[in-house]
Structure formats: structure tokens, C-alpha cells
Nucleic acid binder design. Structure first.
Length: 504
RNA sequence: GGCGUCAUGGUGUAACUGGUUAACACGCCGCCCUCUCAAGGCGGAGAGUACGGGUUCGAUCCCCGUUGACGCUACCA
């Protein structure tokens, strides 16, 4: 395998090849869709190929259902890939966990040519060193303990069965400069580039190694990714050099932001594509909205400006492919404004023919599957079918917001209740969305804070349903869905926080 | 703290290779329409382009500095 790799020369043929490389660590993220869209547009426009690669090298954060959700979400948005784990392609496998042998071989290559070394330091040692450096107000950096071990020391360590990682040997002098296609040259001094871990002790590669190796092997010509990667790009450039490979072009897109301008996060904004789908956003609206972020679309002509938004802000994927222009990309981090997304979604909703609108309802918030699940929860609790709505309206409404008379337990203060609710949200986020998993997780939380099961569940019930009476709580949450439940809970906390600051 | 990136109304964007009363959209407010609410129509408030220096006859646009925001600073990606 190695022989064929080293025979490869610079990409002479200029077929554009781009990729997105999401990690299956949870729900598919709007950021993934955003970067995916830009890559997709670029590839489609240039007659290139768009690759989907699953970066599942972090076994601690791995979520088994995540990969399929990523596929589904991207397909829902009509962002389709030419090569990927599920569709195959000439440069597979496209799942990094199936390529560990390749990474090991390449790490060996670096070990052999002296651009990487084995590091036997323990986590505790590294932690201690880091603390010391922080205390001394020095930048935390690998202290270099194992950087120059002798062959005999290394062999002794290996013979003793000491676990090790492989680190890259970043030159101590000089600097690395690379070109970002959107911002020009960026330079990093080598003493600001740490000896990055390339291979973890569990035998899996880190992002940095896997990414460079795969991008090269998969003939990626343009690495279009989020801005958060700028600081690690010099490591990647150094890696290309260490392998003697030509490097791709780098583009760093701005990060989507919360209202407060921080990097978009689930604590402050719904970020799961599953949420947007279940809450009844149309894929056309979501994709259109994402296309609005960060520019990339050509400036409207004066005529278009006169005609208003419909001509220059509302466009289909095909129109985006035709209109997308790199020089128009804006570098400031755009705030993900749900308000505008909703307006856009409303525009698309209104444009639907009556039958299509009905179909949209029936396939999402009124699907047979959803109704069937809800029906089983209320069958024994209503006396006429006409009462169905009485018990279930919270499943269909999106403005549930209980007041303290509903959510506040009698023996609790507002403050401790909100603190507990915050903990509750964290637990919900971290728990599998099944009754079997939720029940013990919630009860454990209650015990830890000496909240009775009744208080605990009643609070949650109030937040979810807006009432103290409802169908079985856990089953209702499962039917309602994790993404929407979390969003409702988060909005509850936000509203309470806002109220509190208003009082002051 | 260190390093890096970015910077036009509350938000998303526009302003051709420097010359505009700084435009459009979302949101907000008001009016009209109307059985209500939306939608739609009309109008309004809201930025002088983060700040300070240059260069220039003239800077949102070019240069320098400052500030701020954000990102990275893991055996996460």
C-alpha cells in the first residue's frame, strides 16, 4: 500500500475534490450543514466531486446512531455526496475507524524519517506540567520530555510495555506560512506550534494525522472548513511536508454564532438539524438561510434591490449553485438569527400549494407515526375522542411557557428550582432518549439534589407540557423527541433568566 | 496569559477597480386593509461604516496603531 502512495505525484489533473468530515458524536449539526453546503456548491459549480468522510476516531464521544442521522439530515437538505461510507467510491473506505492500519503505517513513516517520536509521558505527568506552566504564566506546551529519547531508552520502554502516543516533532526554529484562499498568507511561529499527538495510545489517530493522510489519499484539492481550524493548519502543513506531499488549498469559513456572538452552541441555540426537521422547518428554507450566511452570493443589482428581498434573498439550491461566488464570502462570523429563518420558512410555507402544505404537515408534525405514538398515551385518559386535544395540545404547540404557579414546587424557592432545572437539562442532554435510560438518570439526579421524584418529574412536566396534568411524562418526552424537548427546556430557562434580569 | 482571525443599524447582507442623502431584507413601531390573527400595502425609528491616526481633492473601501469580539491553546473534532 505504501508503495502506491509514494508514487503519487502532485495533483496534476485539476478536478476539484472537496469533502466534509463530520464526527459522529451526536445530532447532526447546523455547522456541518453550513460547511457542507459551501463545499457542495463549490464542487457542483466546478464539476468537481464532493466527498463525505466520517471521522469516528474519538471512541469516547462516539454515538452509534449519529452517523445515520448525519446521512439523513444532509439528504433531507438535498446536500448529496458523490463518495462516502454509504455510497462507496474509488478512495474508500470513507470511515476512519476502518482505516486505522493506514494511519499506523503512515505514523511509522514519520517515525522512520524523524519527524515524529514516541512519547511515554502519562496523563498525570502532562497534567502536572501543564499546571506548572499555567502557574508560571507560560503557554501550556508539551515539555519535550520524550522528544530526544535514545534508541535504547525507547526500546526499554516498549519492552516494559509502557503505553505511548506518537507526537509530531515540530521544528524549534522558524515558522510556517500558508495561504488561506479567503484571507491571504498566515504565519505561525514554530514556538507557538505544539508537538501535537498524532496517534493516541488506543491506536486511533487524532484528527490532525487522519485528516492529512485521508485528504491526500482521497485526492482532496480544496480543504474548505470552519475558521476554528486556522490555528492547527500549520501542523497540517508541516505534516504534508513531512510526508513530502503537495498540500491542498485551504479555505476557512467564518463560524456561525449565537446571538451573543460566541461560536454557535446547543446551550444557546438549537443546533441539531433533527430539531429543525421535527419542528417543521422546510429543507429549502434551511438551506436558503444557510446560503445567506457569510455572503457567497453575488451582490444584487440595483433593480433587484428595488424589487425587494424576494428577488435577492430567496433562492433554491440550483440558483445557489449558479450564483455562488467565492470573492463574495464575508469573513465576519454571522449570527444565526432564528427570527430570519422563521420568516424565510414562512415564505416557503406560504408558497406551497394547498395540497403540498397538507402533505408537509402530514409528513412531520401530524405524521401517522407521531399521532399513533401520542394516541397510545391518551387512549385510557379521555372519555370522548373530542377530548384528544385537551391532553395533547403541548405536542403540537410551540409556545409552551409555564408560569411559576405551575412549575414551582410548593417547598422550593424560585432560585433553587431554576438551578435544579439547569441540572435537569444537562442530564437530559447526556441521556439516551428512551424511557429505560431517562428514568434512572432523572431519579439519580433527584437523589443527588434531594429532590423527590414527584417534585423532579412535576417540574419537568410543567416545562414540557405547561401543565401539572399530562399523559405519562417520560413516554411523552420520547414521543415529542429529544431535540424538541431540549429546545423547549432551554427556552424555559432562558425565559426565566430574562424575567429575573427584568426584575433587577 | 500566548498565538491567530475578524470588525457596516439589534440581526443578515449591499455599496463597481476610493466620489451614494450609506441601500435591501429580518426584527421593531405606526397607519391602511379586515369579523380576529396573520399575509399584503404604505410609512417610521434605528448605523455615518469599532476608535485614533495617516495617504488622497475625496475614504466603508488603501496603510499603521488601538480597542473589542471570536477562535485555538486536549491522547475532542
Amino acid at each position: 500500500m505504501l508503495a502506491t502512495m509514494t508514487l503519487q505525484t502532485a495533483q496534476t489533473e485539476q478536478t476539484i475534490r472537496v469533502r466534509i468530515a463530520p464526527s459522529p458524536t451526536g445530532d447532526p449539526h447546523v455547522g456541518t450543514a453550513y460547511i457542507g453546503l459551501i463545499n457542495f456548491l463549490y464542487a457542483r459549480q466546478r464539476g468537481g466531486k464532493f466527498v463525505l468522510r466520517i471521522e469516528d476516531t474519538d471512541r469516547a464521544r462516539f454515538v452509534s446512531t449519529s452517523e445515520q442521522m448525519i446521512f439523513d439530515a444532509l439528504r433531507w437538505l438535498n446536500i448529496t455526496w458523490d463518495e462516502g461510507p454509504d455510497v462507496g467510491g474509488p478512495y474508500g473506505p470513507y470511515r476512519q475507524s476502518e482505516r486505522t492500519e493506514i494511519y499506523r503505517e503512515h505514523a511509522d513513516l514519520l517515525l522512520a524519517n524523524g519527524t515524529a517520536y514516541r512519547c511515554f509521558c502519562t496523563a498525570d505527568e502532562l497534567e502536572a506540567a501543564r499546571k506548572q506552566q499555567m502557574a508560571a504564566k507560560l503557554p501550556p506546551r508539551y515539555p519535550g520530555t520524550c522528544r530526544n529519547l535514545s534508541v535504547t531508552e525507547i526500546e526499554a520502554n516498549i519492552a516494559a510495555g509502557k503505553p505511548f502516543v506518537i507526537r509530531m516533532k515540530v521544528p524549534t526554529e522558524g515558522s510556517t506560512t500558508f495561504r488561506d484562499e479567503l484571507r491571504g498568507e498566515i504565519t505561525f511561529d514554530h514556538n507557538n506550534v505544539d508537538d501535537q499527538v498524532l496517534m493516541k495510545s488506543d491506536g486511533f489517530p487524532t484528527y490532525h494525522l487522519a485528516n492529512v493522510v485521508d485528504d491526500y489519499l482521497m485526492r482532496i484539492t480544496d480543504v474548505i472548513r470552519a475558521e476554528e481550524w486556522i490555528s492547527s493548519t500549520p501542523k497540517h502543513v508541516l505534516l504534508y511536508q513531512a510526508f513530502g506531499w503537495p498540500q491542498p488549498r485551504f479555505w476557512h469559513m467564518p463560524l456561525l454564532r449565537n446571538l451573543d456572538k460566541s461560536k454557535i452552541s446547543k446551550r444557546k441555540n438549537p443546533v441539531s438539524l433533527v430539531y429543525y426537521r421535527q419542528a417543521g422547518f422546510l429543507p429549502e428554507a434551511v438551506i436558503n438561510f444557510l446560503g445567506l450566511m457569510g455572503g457567497g452570493m453575488p451582490s444584487p443589482t440595483p433593480v433587484e434591490i428595488v424589487n425587494g428581498a424576494k428577488e435577492n434573498e430567496i433562492f433554491s439550491l440550483d440558483e445557489m449553485i449558479a450564483r455562488f461566488e467565492v470573492p463574495n464570502i464575508r469573513l465576519g462570523g454571522p449570527v444565526f438569527d432564528l427570527n430570519k429563518l422563521k420568516w424565510l420558512n414562512a415564505e416557503y410555507l406560504r408558497a406551497l400549494a394547498a395540497e403540498a402544505f397538507f402533505t408537509a404537515l402530514r409528513s412531520t408534525v401530524l405524521s401517522d407515526q407521531y399521532l399513533r405514538e401520542i394516541a397510545t398515551l391518551v387512549q385510557t385518559r379521555i372519555e370522548t375522542l373530542g377530548e384528544f386535544g385537551n391532553l395533547t395540545h403541548f405536542f403540537f404547540a410551540d409556545n409552551i411557557l409555564p408560569g411559576p404557579e405551575v412549575f414551582l414546587p410548593k417547598k422550593r424557592t424560585l432560585e433553587e428550582t431554576l438551578a435544579f432545572a439547569t441540572e435537569q437539562l444537562a442530564v437530559l442532554e447526556a441521556t439516551d432518549w428512551t424511557v429505560a435510560a431517562l428514568e434512572p438518570a432523572l431519579k439519580q439526579l433527584g437523589e443527588a439534589h434531594t429532590w423527590s421524584v414527584k417534585e423532579n418529574f412535576m417540574l419537568l412536566r410543567a416545562i414540557l407540557t405547561g401543565s401539572t396534568m399530562s399523559p405519562p411524562l417520560l413516554e411523552s418526552m420520547v414521543a415529542f423527541g429529544k431535540a424538541r424537548t431540549l429546545d423547549r427546556h432551554r427556552r424555559f430557562l432562558e425565559a426565566q433568566k430574562k424575567l429575573a434580569t427584568q426584575k433587577k
